[in-house]
């Protein structure tokens, strides 16, 4: 399991390739890449700043990763999140999951993103055509995360 929170850019393709490097037991890799869009909630977006809670951020992501590893038989899990200034088109987040078979990798990747969206201390501030604004949380994200509750 690897958790990285960084201000520098990354190459999603290189991250995907690294997911199965040196492990021929890996039969499936599922990855998610989130990008900065140039339009959101009716306004043009020229850029974004990602604030976080240093210390808690790494712990929260680590906790989500551990939970995913407890629920599914995973061979490798990587979570990478940008902080600081970003431009439209840049990758913000990468989640890579490797397993022997595809179902565990698909489900774990979905789970990690849902929990990251609702439990990891990141906040987006957009630079829009009408000035800066904080992005509001979405209830659809809360509902998505609720799907994984054990019942």
């Amino acid at each position: 399991m690897a958790i990285r929170v960084q201000a520098t850019a990354f190459d999603p393709g290189a991250e995907v390739n690294a997911m199965h490097a040196a492990n021929v037991g890996v039969g499936a890799v599922v990855s998610f890449v989130g990008y900065v869009r140039d339009f959101n909630d009716g306004r043009d977006v020229a850029g974004m700043f990602l604030e976080h809670y240093p210390g808690m951020t790494e712990k929260a992501l680590g906790k989500i990763a551990v939970e995913a590893e407890q629920r599914w038989p995973l061979l490798k899990l990587e979570v990478l999140h940008r902080v600081g200034a970003l431009e439209p088109g840049e990758p913000i987040v990468f989640v890579g999951v490797a397993s022997a078979h595809r179902q565990a990798a698909f489900e774990a990747c979905d789970f990690v993103m849902d929990y990251l969206k609702t439990r990891a201390p990141f906040w987006k501030k957009e630079t829009t055509s009408e000035g800066p604004r904080w992005v509001e949380g979405r209830t659809s994200d809360q509902h998505a995360a609720g799907r994984w509750a054990k019942g």
Partner: peptide
């Protein structure tokens, strides 16, 4: 203790 609005990462 930390107080913050709904998180919006990802």
């Amino acid at each position: 203790v930390a107080f913050f609005p709904t998180v919006t990462g990802g």
